[in-house]
């Protein structure tokens, strides 16, 4: 059972990671820096609960706000460039963050031992859940509370004018400017929101894993972050969730029995999925079918 709960937590956390890339992708921007914001969230929340002995909720919120703040700062220079150049710029940021934590040593004595980030050895003592006697069920519930809150917020945003504005910028920048939208404002706002979401994910990750080190936050993690919304499609937040379940649940975990063949089949299945559903696993058509199955009518003034 604890294996499945652990998997559920992982899926929740990766959904947050994917949604952080999803927000920015709505404006047509691709960032490979999401692992950096995730790392900021993870390390900061860990430091706050371990060294400052804060409760998990304020620690998580502060960590997420800090990640959002850095996303805001990075957004201004990074979003002046587009396409591949933005990808390169955000990779550089992600690596910068990773190497910062690689070198960060901040050990303090606590109950006879030293705790805190220990540069190359990682940050090993993020035991908030264990120390407070949380059960695996409670941790899973805690993680999914945040996942559902973020998903609900984004789902609602998508139906609002703000969501239409994000998509408008993603569809045609010149037309968006011509109806009075400031590209910088819209993109930096999306980047900041994405940073916040990645920060929440990172904070939850650090506490469920109890141990983080810089190797967790490489470009590979950033690649996962963007592959979820790409595979799931941008028609709604559920696409990202479906893609995370598909990749983490089915491909990564489900194919374990294949041993070394797993990576090959993994890649193959992604290619097949992209060919069968080029606009995402969860595209407008799937959404319509599902809605009909549940007996709901389409949103009256919003996109299907």
């Amino acid at each position: 059972m604890s294996y499945y709960l652990g998997l559920a937590q992982l899926i929740g956390i990766h959904t947050l990671l994917g949604l952080s890339a999803y927000v920015l992708m709505l404006t047509g921007q691709l960032s490979l820096g999401q692992a950096g914001f995730f790392a900021i969230g993870a390390y900061c929340a860990g430091i706050l609960t371990v060294i400052f002995e804060l409760h998990i909720v304020p620690a998580l919120l502060i960590a997420a706000l800090l990640a959002a703040f850095f996303a805001f700062l990075v957004g201004f220079p990074a979003l002046r460039v587009k396409g591949l150049m933005l990808v390169v710029a955000t990779i550089a940021f992600g690596e910068f963050v990773r190497l910062f934590f690689f070198n960060l040593s901040w050990r303090v004595p606590r109950d006879g031992i030293h705790v805190g980030p220990d540069s190359t050895n990682g940050f090993r003592e993020i035991r908030y859940f264990v120390a407070n006697g949380w059960s695996a069920w409670e941790i899973t519930l805690f993680v999914w509370t945040f996942v559902l809150l973020v998903m609900a917020a984004l789902w609602w945003t998508d139906r609002s004018r703000a969501g239409a504005v994000l998509r408008a910028v993603g569809e045609d920048e010149l037309a968006a400017q011509s109806v009075g939208l400031s590209l910088t404002t819209v993109k930096v706002t999306a980047m900041t929101a994405g940073g916040f979401i990645a920060g929440v994910g990172g904070a939850l990750y650090a506490h469920t894993a109890t141990y983080v080190d810089h190797l967790t936050f490489t470009v590979l993690l950033a690649t996962f972050a963007i592959s979820y919304p790409i595979l799931g499609g941008l028609s709604s937040v559920f696409g990202t969730l479906v893609a995370v379940i598909f990749i983490q649940g089915v491909l990564v975990e489900g194919l374990r029995f294949m041993g070394d063949w797993r990576s090959i089949v993994f890649g193959l299945l992604i290619v097949v999925a992209m060919n069968l559903k080029p606009s995402g696993l969860f595209d407008a058509r799937t959404a319509r079918l599902l809605r009909r199955a549940v007996g709901l009518r389409g949103g009256e003034k919003s996109r299907a």
């Binding site: 239409a164 504005v165 011509s178 109806v179 009075g180 996109r303």
Partner: peptide, 24 residues
């Protein structure tokens, strides 16, 4: 405000959303 010689709408937004976005 302007229109374009080669129409530039937001193709994957609804008609209503196209107008909504512009109300700024």
């Amino acid at each position: 405000a302007r229109t374009f010689q080669n129409i530039r709408l937001f193709p994957n937004l609804t008609v209503w959303q196209n107008l909504w976005v512009a109300q700024n």
